[in-house]
């Protein structure tokens, strides 16, 4: 089981995934902004980071992911995107190409169903364990 840090400015979304992940035995910490996410990261040292791209700023999630990549290059990140189409214009990296520098394991396009989230977390935890 893993310790998951959820960073999203939508309290409902946090609540949904907390319910789902805890039901399956994962530990969940939550943060509601990029800054809070950074602080929580320093404190709680999660196994996986689930990050919403668009929070208080259009690209807060990307910025946080970028900072995390520098300080914690091994921490796997799941990025939740609402509008993947537009994202790719500005941050033109692909999963394959930029995995090296940005430890984004997956881009999950919203809505992400509980099952999809669980599958993604399991996959990440599994691949890190291996």
């Amino acid at each position: 089981m893993a310790h998951v840090l959820l960073v999203d400015d939508d309290a409902d979304i946090i609540e949904i995934y907390r319910t789902v992940l805890e039901a399956k035995g994962h530990t969940v910490s939550a943060a509601f902004s990029g800054q809070q996410g950074w602080d929580a990261l320093e404190k709680s040292r999660p196994d996986v980071l689930v990050l919403d791209v668009m929070m208080e700023e259009f690209d807060s999630g990307f910025r946080l992911a970028h900072d995390v990549a520098i300080k914690y290059p091994k921490l796997p990140i799941l990025l939740l995107t609402a509008v993947h189409d537009f994202m790719s214009d500005q941050w033109s990296f692909s999963n394959e190409k930029d995995k090296d520098w940005l430890p984004v394991v997956r881009f999950l396009e919203k809505p992400v169903t509980p099952d999809q989230m669980l599958a993604a977390i399991d996959e990440v935890v599994h691949s890190v364990a291996v």
Partner: peptide, 19 residues
């Protein structure tokens, strides 16, 4: 998109029996 996808996730949470 955000509220709609939030609602979708909420609905699937209920459908999948987490509530």
């Amino acid at each position: 998109r955000a509220p709609v996808s939030g609602a979708q996730t909420l609905v699937s949470l209920i459908i999948e029996g987490y509530a």
